[in-house]
Design a protein around this nucleic acid. Structure first.
Lengths: 214, 214
DNA sequence: ACCTGAACACCGTTCAAGT
DNA sequence: ACCTGAACACCGTTCAAGT
């Protein structure tokens, strides 16, 4: 809140990530962002061209913060480690996959594309051709982003997001067991699992089958 | 544009889907929606409580329009057919996965949950326990939604969305082949594939491995 | 060089008023 | 019962004005 330090692009991105983590993508407005920095909204435009540049900036930063896997690992373990690192980084800042999914961000920096390049290298090493590599990348990326994006929509609730006392899956309370018998059956354990380990289970299934794309 | 017919909830949802498909999720505003119906924005509130109800309504409708698989099929083919139908329905109305991913919609109707129930039934039939079923659902749903959401973000461009003359992957033009060697290599074929068949390839890999979750 | 105030063209939504 | 106009509290962004 304090306007102590001089305004910089980096401080703006810091504040944007902080604001988004508390108020969500919708709550990330230029006006509220400026207020959190102790400044008027228009001051931001001296450091960024527009809101898109802010969203690109936080996406670049979060994607750039993904841990790189040990290049000595065999390709399957490298895919696994990279995908898990992607999952964790994006999980911590779901505003980034949300902005990507809604075309509000489009990061292009080298560091943002680095994890993708690492995945691609592992797929080539697995012996896939260009088409197989493209398919493998799409599948792994879809699983990573999809797991994070859907974990916020109720079907699989993430306990790390659940405030104490909040009831899980409020809208699936009264299912008609005749109409949705399997949903009714699985409902008690829908919220029971750990989102990350569920993701990893699916990821391992996918990785094990990737050589089929050869 | 014509105010001929009486305003109804169904006509509002029709117009909302049409507006979203031309103007995107961002372009779907109460004011523009009303204008497309030849009415003032405030008239909408006689038929829906708020914008969220409209987003839930179109999500319900699109999810409810997913073709159900032949229940006589073996479980793997049933999963495949259901997931492909989900993909196609959502692909035609990407505003729905976008609204779901950003927590702007939360459909709860029986018809919206029916495809999920069908998937769950197939997973149980495959011999998975409750945890395995939850993991399988998360993986398949993530792959479906992720494939659609990421296909709009540039890494895999969907040719059905590309207007003639538009250049593909504009931001990946000048990659440094030293820094991103594999990205540079795959780039020429990144846009070459068909998004749906790429999705199905990944889906088949995943389905083939699902029994491992037992 | 950096920040602000006022303004413009938008939002979702409420409410009193019209028919 | 259904629709409208005006209003409120917001948006992103531009631009002239301040320091």
């Amino acid at each position: 809140m304090a306007p102590r330090q001089p305004l910089t692009r980096e401080r703006i991105l810091d504040a944007a990530l902080a604001l988004a983590s508390t108020d969500g993508l919708d709550g990330l407005s230029m006006r509220k962002l400026a207020k959190s920095l102790g400044v008027e909204a228009m001051a931001l435009y001296n450091h960024v061209a527009n809101k898109t540049e802010i969203l690109d900036g936080i996406a670049d930063r979060v994607l750039g913060g993904i841990d790189r896997a040990d290049p000595e690992l065999p390709w399957a373990q490298r895919v696994r480690a990279t995908a898990v690192s992607m999952y964790r980084a994006l999980r911590h800042h779901p505003v980034v996959p949300m902005a990507l999914a809604t075309d509000q961000a489009n990061p292009t920096s080298l560091r943002a594309l680095q994890p993708i390049d690492d995945l691609l290298g592992a797929f080539y090493e697995a012996g896939l051709d260009d088409d197989g590599v493209r398919q493998a990348l799409g599948a792994v990326q879809s699983l990573v982003h999809g797991s994070i994006l859907l974990s916020t929509t109720g079907f699989v609730r993430d306990t790390s997001r659940t405030t104490p006392g909040e009831q899980l899956d409020p809208y699936v309370h009264r299912l008609d067991p005749d109409k949705l018998p399997h949903f009714s059956r699985v409902q008690p354990v829908l919220s029971a699992g750990d989102a990350e380990s569920d993701f990893v289970r699916g990821l391992d299934v996918l990785i094990a089958g990737l050589p089929v794309l050869k």
